[in-house]
């Protein structure tokens, strides 16, 4: 939990501002998401995406937050988050030290004429066709956020009817964590 002005997770295809990914371990208590989200809005920090789910230990949930670092210094965001009583551990994940994944569902126009092309692209990206209609299909794709960006751009010309992404989740690469961070996390879990 020692943030530094390191590289962001990169600019998106549309030249979005740089983002940082915070992996926030929280106590699994009611209202905790509201506390975290409220802190961001109250202090004027921008959330780019947010994903939350319980961890394997049911006492804790992990919130993955992509922060727009242009809205506030990351160090200040982390320090304010750390003051929330239910926040147990904050890890800033650099893109080169993290495994990131995101899930995308997209319903795209795929009439008989273009269906084969869509299916082919889905195959190339390792996605799945999860629903088929007369004129459209729904595709599920999990992968790196930038891979999803690419896929989204390729689907756009066919005509996107609806699209939903989950926001990214991430864990540190194995061996990519500093030993002290790993130790602190372990201590936090044990003392809990």
């Amino acid at each position: 939990m020692s943030p530094s002005a390191g590289p962001g997770t990169g600019a998106g295809p549309s030249g979005r501002p740089r983002h940082h990914l915070l992996s926030v371990l929280v106590e699994n208590k009611s209202g905790v998401l509201s506390r975290v989200a409220g802190l961001f809005s109250r202090r004027g920090y921008n959330i780019f995406s947010l994903a939350v789910a319980p961890t394997d230990d049911e006492r804790f949930s992990r919130i993955s937050i992509v922060v727009d670092v242009d809205s506030a210094p990351l160090e200040q965001v982390v320090a304010q988050l750390d003051k929330l009583v239910n926040v147990v551990e904050i890890t800033e994940l650099h893109p080169d030290e993290a495994r990131e994944a995101e899930l995308l569902l997209v319903t795209v126009v795929a009439d008989a004429e273009r269906r084969a092309q869509v299916f082919q692209l889905v195959g190339v990206f390792g996605g799945q066709i999860v629903d088929v209609g007369l004129e459209e299909v729904t595709v599920m794709l999990a992968g790196s956020p930038s891979g999803l960006d690419d896929f989204e751009e390729l689907m756009r010309p066919y005509g996107i009817i609806e699209l939903q992404r989950t926001g990214r989740v991430a864990l540190p690469k194995l061996g990519g964590r500093s030993p002290s961070t790993a130790r602190r996390e372990q201590q936090a879990l044990e003392s809990a």
């Binding site: 009611s30 209202g31 509201s34 506390r35 409220g38 109250r42 929330l84 009583v85």
Partner: peptide
């Protein structure tokens, strides 16, 4: 009141 006071308390409990 716990929702209302999140931003003006150090912590609150229901």
């Amino acid at each position: 009141i716990t929702g209302i006071t999140i931003g003006v308390t150090k912590h609150n409990w229901l």
